[in-house]
Design a protein around this nucleic acid. Structure first.
Lengths: 237, 237
DNA sequence: CAGTGGTCTAGACCACTGG
DNA sequence: CAGTGGTCTAGACCACTGG
């Protein structure tokens, strides 16, 4: 009589609290219901109520203090690296011309690691695309993207020479969250060929996982020639 | 008979697993003990063993899959792009040992470009430091920093083998703002020597300008070996 | 003091993976 | 099938905060 697979209790509680915060019912600094109050309100055990509060705190939405309670955090504005931008828009914004060349656009079987990152069963079919983005005919990004077919079933029918995966995906599965990591790597032979640079040239590699409300949407690996791209950001403390 | 305030059980289990991973007993891709095995081994309840595994997964050290088990992730140190963090703190937080080796620590005359970036008259005296930061004796950052003497007049008197420029500067001229850009470059001969990597290896270069209420405090160029460092960030939309 | 969050137990049923 | 992680309960003792 536990664990309805539909939506776990702790998720329901998180959603409810999130709604109150986003709806303005709970404002920054306000105290949210205590663990015991949530136990009463949602008819769950304290461990379950607690999990909802802990996860909201983990994601920065709440601040918790022993003896005091849990409070809505003061949200701070995001800086510009912390914004997911569409490469085509970015290029157009500079007054340049964007073009996308689709090298691959098919489905593959997810190996163990990819399956974990995408949150799909190991061995299941996922979509894949490989696209070179050019700014005034100069390659600036090689985009390799794995897509969760459950959240973008028509991904393979899109024409990515006229739009971008990023634009399409944010239309069909609105972005709620993203994780990314940035590294420096050397171009291997195949990457070098695709980006029209030398093998062994420095590249910036951005690995990004995007989430919608339903889960992981896609896993993108973006490779940029080191001398044609950099990431800027402005931080306010 | 629970909750010895010394160290909670789940922390002890995390430490034990971390030690096995860092000691090489468990390598990337290996399966770590299951929840039930930890129950046996540490004499705790499954909820407690589970918490240890969940937190290690949360911090990126493990990957978990239902039905399969928990596996050691392919890890590298991560740092956040959305936050200016002190390299020493970051390293200590990972439970590792930080050391700083001061290669240069002197004053120079500002050329035109540097003067502009620092907001000082061209040709005036500015401070400079060059420091190798090591994580457990492995170089992870070469920090070259130019400092505005008006805002940190005693910069040259500091001992940067025991503290870091970042820590000292944020004490004397609290950070209000920062601008940074991130690029991929190849290590030149001198950088390669300082970081103990090969000439031509991929490096992440972060160029950061920090501001206090009084103006530009410093201009730092941080070079990281590509295979020993990456920048991570989490974005909420 | 009553209320808060922090840690923990010993059970339970479930979905999922491999063999 | 046995084993894995995912969710959940109904209790417990604790340290900490404010009044």
């Amino acid at each position: 009589m536990v664990a309805q697979m539909a939506t776990p209790h702790y998720v329901r509680i998180k959603q409810a609290l999130r709604a109150r915060i986003e709806g303005g019912e709970l404002r920054p600094g306000d105290r949210v219901p205590s663990e015991n109050q949530l136990v009463e309100e949602f008819g769950v055990s304290r461990m379950t109520a607690r999990r909802a509060l802990l996860e909201l705190a983990e994601s920065g939405l709440l601040l918790r203090t022993q003896g005091l309670g849990s409070f809505v955090a003061d949200v701070r504005p995001m800086s510009s690296t912390t914004q997911i931008r569409n490469i085509a828009e970015e290029i157009n914004q500079r007054g340049h011309h964007h073009s996308g060349q689709v090298l691959r656009h098919d489905e593959i079987s997810a190996d163990h690691e990819r399956a974990i990152h995408l949150g799909v069963p190991s061995g299941s079919i996922i979509f894949h695309s490989l696209i070179v983005h050019r700014e005034n005919d100069l390659p600036v990004q090689l985009e390799s993207r794995l897509v969760n077919p459950a959240l973008a079933p028509r991904y393979l029918q899109q024409d990515f020479s006229t739009t971008t995966p990023s634009a399409y995906l944010s239309a069909v599965a609105p972005l709620t969250e993203a994780e990314q990591s940035v590294e420096a790597v050397l171009a291997d032979q195949s990457t070098a060929k695709d980006l029209d640079i030398k093998t062994g040239a420095a590249c910036l590699r951005i690995t990004r996982r995007t989430f919608s409300a339903q889960g992981v949407v896609s896993l993108a690996v973006l490779l940029h020639p080191g001398d044609r791209y950099r990431l800027g950001s402005h931080i306010n403390t």
